[in-house]
Design a protein around this nucleic acid. Structure first.
Length: 732
DNA sequence: TAAGGGCTGATTTTT
DNA sequence: TCAGCCCTTA
């Protein structure tokens, strides 16, 4: 009997042998729409990379005919590297990158069609957006405290993701607040155009408008991209959905990979329904389910599975693994944040002795604010770590100042850049002068930059006219040299002329010195960029920087423990994972608009990052908003199958309920309070530990019951009298 | 116009 | 806790 094969097996396809049956089918099913539901650790990236390699090896497409969309630059780079291993350097010609980067690239080519912008456009980050909005809000005589730039930015972003214009938003506005926001949206959009700037959402929105208004442009890209692949499809928003549907309309070779259980970006407009819509739009789509997990131990997978089952909105699937049972999951109870950091550090050292390299271990948390206590703990224990995220390099003030100066060279109409640096360092250009310029710009339809050229007509005093003119000449001088000399040298001279560096040095504070060093580091980054891509211009550098994210700075090769948010860890894996801060209100974070199922999916993402060992920690107290708060254990801990959980000493977790349902609040409190001492157990002379004051010795117990008073001599804080109920003392 | 001091409000997560 | 903002003063 002969089985028909589209392509004969040969050396070129030897890599297919490394796939399981479903993976291989998903790779070989090249034509038409394909939906791959890929559970955590099921070899999703492998399928995507092999599929691309297969398209190339079978001659179905040239590299430049493949469009592969990811959510982070890092994911794109990783995929590029792996394809290169399979097919060699021609992988470099694949259109692979983030949605935002690739559509920015298309807009650089085509934006002239739309009229309002030119190719030198700048990309505004959220800070630029909010500064612009603040100006617009004040201009409309609204109170920024009632209508905050932040909330307006949110709303506008939401509208843009729904593909709504300012006019449509205005029509749909349900209340006064939304009506104001819609008006601000209109003005905001005008100002963006005047500044020749786009925001992140425009990078997706404008290609849609472009393709809809200019079918011949769309047709060109439809022909170019014969195969389209999208990673992390569960996190696409409406605009991303529409733009890829347009591009794929002609050939329908659209392959999307996603896992609804890992959808964690609904807050940013991502819509899980895109996976469901996909099957409606393409009823003939082939669907593949990758359910074998290659990453984690059975226990880890069981923990993750038991948690995610509490979500109602979930596509049915059954992940399984052939991996060993592995070690139980360890629950670490800590009295304070400080202790949590210390405990984690101690465990890391121990694991290191057991043979786990630091680079194979990660500490994950819900919010960046938590990193501080953990960092302290690791630093004290001399555990090397690398922090991903937090205040990233490119968000620092001095770096943003320098970048604003550079943006001005490429696009002098960039108003937020101009406002940022016009008087930095102080040049004697104050609020009054600026007001006059704004007025002139509004009257004549100038950009602010053009208004400066006509400053003498704005009724500005000669005293302020002088520095304005010098500023304009300086920018023009270096602008004229763009492209004629090496970028690094140009930038160095230009920065010298601005007086920015000088001002930093003159401050003579350690902070200013650190800032100065950061600027030097930025110069090195420019030099490096230029070396890597000699043909690239300054605006290419600026664009790359504006689309960088924190995770992109992650260096997996150094032997250090990784600290990052669970969000940032998506797509990564480690042999050992700690998830810190497993407390109600923190993870899940509780706000009026919290979507508990999304929080649970996020926890699921965290759990499934672990390959071999998993540790969950929670602290009984924590400083929030500057005051000490007592924290309850996270409900998610109750949802983990108790059979895979042990405490720090390897004992099973008692009182966790049956494992099929989460315990009631009362149950939870019992577990939570297990080690808290009550008055029966307290004896003078006993060593105890307090969440805030640390360790000490009991001197005296007065009264009985929860209201009993305890006199304790703390090692560090001296004598304190405490109400037992609130003191939450534990045996030290 | 620039610098310094006190007050307030915020903390999710990020392309 | 802390950073950014507003107000005051030189």
């Amino acid at each position: 009997m002969r089985t028909f094969r589209l392509t004969p097996p040969s050396e070129a396809f030897a890599f297919l042998e490394e796939l399981n049956d479903v993976q291989r089918q998903a790779v070989e099913h090249t034509e038409g729409p394909v939906l791959i539901i890929a559970g955590a650790g099921s070899g999703k990236t492998r399928v995507l990379t092999y599929r691309i390699a297969y398209l190339l090896a079978t001659g179905r497409a040239y590299p430049e005919q493949i469009l592969a969309l990811t959510f982070t630059n890092k994911a794109a780079r990783e995929m590029q590297r792996r394809i290169e291993e399979l097919v060699g350097p021609r992988a470099q010609h694949i259109w692979m990158g983030t949605f935002h980067a690739l559509f920015a690239r298309i807009l650089r080519q085509e934006i002239d069609h739309l009229g309002l912008w030119n190719r030198q456009f700048t990309i505004y980050d959220t800070e630029d957006q909010e500064r612009l909005l603040l100006g617009v809000i004040k201009e409309k005589q609204l109170d920024p405290k009632l209508i905050s730039p932040r909330s307006v930015r949110h709303r506008i972003s939401f509208w843009k993701n729904q593909l709504l214009s300012p006019e449509e938003a205005r029509r749909l506005a349900a209340n006064v607040l939304e009506a104001h926001a819609a008006d601000l949206y209109a003005l905001y959009q005008e100002r963006l155009a005047r500044a020749n700037a786009l925001d992140f959402d425009d990078l997706l929105l404008l290609p849609i408008r472009l393709f809809e208004q200019f079918p011949e442009v769309l047709a060109r890209y439809q022909q170019r991209f014969r195969y389209i692949l999208i990673d992390e499809y569960q996190d696409t928003n409406r605009a991303q959905y529409v733009v890829t549907r347009l591009l794929a309309a002609a050939h329908r070779n659209l392959c999307v990979v996603g896992d609804d259980a890992q959808a964690i970006y609904a807050f940013r407009g991502a819509d899980i329904r895109n996976i469901l819509s996909f099957q409606e739009d393409y009823p003939d789509a082939a669907v593949f389910r990758l359910e074998q997990n290659y990453r984690s131990t059975k226990r880890i997978l069981r923990a993750a599975d038991s948690v995610i089952r509490f979500n109602r909105n979930q596509l049915p699937k059954q992940l399984w693994t052939a991996n060993p049972d592995g070690e139980p999951i360890v629950l670490l109870r800590c009295a304070s944040e400080r202790e949590e950091g210390e405990t984690i550090a101690r465990m890391l050292l121990q694991l290191r002795r057991e043979g786990y390299p630091y680079r194979e271990m990660a500490v994950l948390y819900r919010t960046n604010a938590q990193s501080r206590a953990i960092e302290d703990g690791l630093r004290m224990a001399a555990v090397p770590y690398q922090l991903v995220g937090g205040l990233s390099f490119y968000k620092r003030r001095e770096i943003k100042d320098v970048l604003a100066y550079l943006r001005l060279l490429v696009n002098p109409d960039d108003e937020e850049a101009l406002l940022r640096v016009l008087n930095v360092p102080p040049r004697g250009i104050g609020e009054r002068t600026l007001e006059r310029l704004r007025l002139l710009a509004a009257e004549r339809g100038y950009s602010l930059w053009q208004a400066i050229a006509h400053a003498s007509e704005a009724g500005i005093s000669t005293r302020a006219l002088n520095p304005l003119e010098r500023f304009r000449e300086m920018v023009e001088h270096y602008r004229a040299q763009l492209g004629t000399r090496a970028a690094v040298e140009l930038v160095r001279d230009y920065l010298g002329a601005t007086g920015l560096m000088e001002a930093l040095l003159a401050e003579r504070t350690p902070e200013a010195e650190a800032r100065w060093e950061n600027v030097q580091e930025l110069l090195s980054a420019i030099a490096e960029f230029q070396q890597l891509r000699p043909e690239a211009t300054l605006d290419a550098f600026l664009q790359e920087v504006s689309l960088l994210t924190d995770i992109d700075t992650y260096e997996p090769d150094t032997d250090r423990v990784t600290l990052m948010t669970v969000h940032a860890a998506k797509g990564l894996e480690f042999r050992v994972v700690f998830i810190a801060g497993m407390e109600e209100g923190l993870f899940p974070i509780l706000a009026p608009d919290t979507d508990i199922e999304e929080e649970r999916r996020l926890f699921y993402v965290g759990l499934t990052r672990a390959r071999e060992r998993l540790f969950l920690s929670h602290s009984q107290s924590r400083y929030r908003f500057g005051t000490l708060q007592y924290m309850e254990r996270s409900r998610f801990l109750q949802e983990i199958d108790p059979e895979v959980l042990v405490d720090e000493r390897g004992r099973p977790i008692a009182g966790s309920g049956t494992g099929t349902l989460s315990g009631s609040d009362a149950d939870r409190r019992v577990v939570y309070d297990e080690d808290i001492l009550d008055w029966h157990a307290l004896r003078p002379g006993m060593r105890v530990e307090h969440p805030q004051f640390g360790e000490g010795r009991v001197l005296e117990v007065q009264g009985s019951g929860p209201q009993a008073r305890v006199l304790v001599h703390f090692d560090l804080y001296g004598q304190k009298k405490l109400v037992l109920q609130y003191a939450r003392l534990r045996r030290a």
